[in-house]
Nucleic acid binder design. Sequence first.
DNA 1: CTTGAAAAGAACTGCCT
DNA 2: AGGCAGTTCTTTTCAAG
Lengths: 151, 151
Amino acid sequence: MPDPDDTDLAILRVVRANAALSTAAVGRAVGLSQAATWRRLDRLRKAGILAGRELALDLEALGFGVTVFLGVKLAAKARVSLEDFERAVSAIPEVRRVDHVLGRYDYRLRVVARDIADFERVFRRRILALPGMGEVEANVMLSERRLPGPL
Amino acid sequence: MPDPDDTDLAILRVVRANAALSTAAVGRAVGLSQAATWRRLDRLRKAGILAGRELALDLEALGFGVTVFLGVKLAAKARVSLEDFERAVSAIPEVRRVDHVLGRYDYRLRVVARDIADFERVFRRRILALPGMGEVEANVMLSERRLPGPL
DNA sequence: CTTGAAAAGAACTGCCT
DNA sequence: AGGCAGTTCTTTTCAAG
């Protein structure tokens, strides 16, 4: 499959900004017909560049108002495999992301809770009980901003 | 607006798992007609719980293979407003997320680059040049896992 | 690549229980 | 609320220039 050309990038910029646009509207924005736009979108999908749609759930509107980022260092002595840790952490409902990272920490977790009291419960009963837990560092999220990113 | 009931939660669980499903298919999964499902989805959208669809771009497939998380502490002396910092950091194309946090750092950034050499360029010329930059800590992402989260 | 069109499917509306 | 039926819009595919 050929790499995306400038027209493809223009299409990606449009759909990234407005995922609810029809192919005809995207075509109008980049100066292509509906059919041609569809063919390009189809190619981008098949190339794995457009990896599918997602529905953004507003967890705050559902009562989960607290988001905490945790940096986790596995205990040096503990002979816990990364797979075991990942399996255990993935079983905690409040954990929304598990990033395996290189640096001061081994994992970065994104955790949600209804409020601080709820977070304390999750932290004490679930997070601290994870196999191989070493150091933990926490950052409470105040606000977030998503940016379009490169392209 | 009334809070979501059990049926709403069932619908949210279904669409969260598969955002590409038609309202008719969602209805089948929860035992409702197409129209009833659509009306509930519409209500959830208007309540802000379903906050809109997004197209997932696979940046790796586009050649951005490196993701780095940065923890940033603003310099104590610098009299830089948070707004100034946020404006400047938001202007860097490679920055995909800016999270204002409480804890050891003031901000957590998610940055993408084509490769490590590209990241070094962004880091030296853009990140280190941000107004008010104090300490920085970096974590290179090895792998990530998104989880459904609570509900 | 374009236009035009047809068929299928999904989204939306109104009416009735 | 929920179901049914119908309308409208989009997607998807095709033929022809």
